[in-house]
C-alpha cells in the first residue's frame, strides 16, 4: 500500500497552527480583560486557559500530523480503491471503482504552494458520498483521476 506524500504533514501542521493561533489570540484577548481589574496579577483561570490552548495547539500542530501521516495508506487496485486511515477511529474503506459517480481534485492555498492536491471520490452512498484522498502530488492526483474516470458509468442516476 502507498503512503501519502510527506509534504502533506506540513499542510496539516500549518492548518492546525492557524486554527490554534486564532484560538490563542482569542484566549489572550479574554485574558487581558480578566487582568485589567487587577493589574500586576494574573488570575489562575487565565493561566489555565492559555496553558490548555498552547498544549492543545502544540499537540495538534506538532504531534498529531506526524502520527496521522503514519496511519494513512491507500491502494488503487484493479477494481477498487482502498483507504486505511485514523488514529483513534481506524477506518478501512473499500470503494468499488464502478460505484464512482464523479471525481474532484481540490487544492487549498497551502497545498498549492507545495504542489499537492486531494482527490475526492464521490459515490451515491450516504456515508461514503465523498471519500477524500489527501496528500498527493498534483500531477499524481490528476493521473489517478484520469485512471478512475473510465470507471464512471453513464447515466449515473
Amino acid at each position: 500500500m502507498h503512503k501519502l506524500h510527506p509534504s502533506v504533514k506540513s499542510v496539516w501542521m500549518i492548518r492546525a497552527a492557524l486554527f490554534w493561533g486564532i484560538c490563542l489570540l482569542i484566549a489572550m484577548a479574554w485574558g487581558i480583560f480578566q487582568i485589567i481589574p487587577w493589574p500586576g496579577q494574573v488570575p489562575t483561570r487565565v493561566l489555565l486557559v492559555l496553558g490548555t490552548v498552547i498544549t492543545l495547539g502544540v499537540l495538534s500542530a506538532g504531534v498529531y500530523p506526524i502520527v496521522r501521516y503514519r496511519f494513512w495508506r491507500y491502494e488503487l487496485r484493479a477494481e477498487d480503491l482502498r483507504l486505511i486511515r485514523g488514529i483513534w477511529w481506524r477506518v478501512d474503506t473499500i470503494v468499488p471503482l464502478r460505484r464512482i459517480q464523479h471525481l474532484d481534485i481540490s487544492q487549498d492555498v497551502f497545498e498549492r504552494n507545495l504542489d499537492l492536491g486531494s482527490l475526492v471520490v464521490h459515490t451515491a452512498g450516504t456515508r461514503s458520498s465523498s471519500v477524500t484522498l489527501p496528500g498527493l502530488l498534483h500531477e499524481e492526483a490528476a493521473r489517478l483521476r484520469d485512471e478512475l474516470k473510465q470507471f464512471i458509468i453513464e447515466p449515473a442516476v
Partner: peptide
C-alpha cells in the same frame, strides 16, 4: 446495492 464496504474500530 452496496456502494462501499467499511471496516472500522475505535481504540
Amino acid at each position: 446495492k452496496f456502494q462501499a464496504i467499511q471496516k472500522s474500530a475505535t481504540f
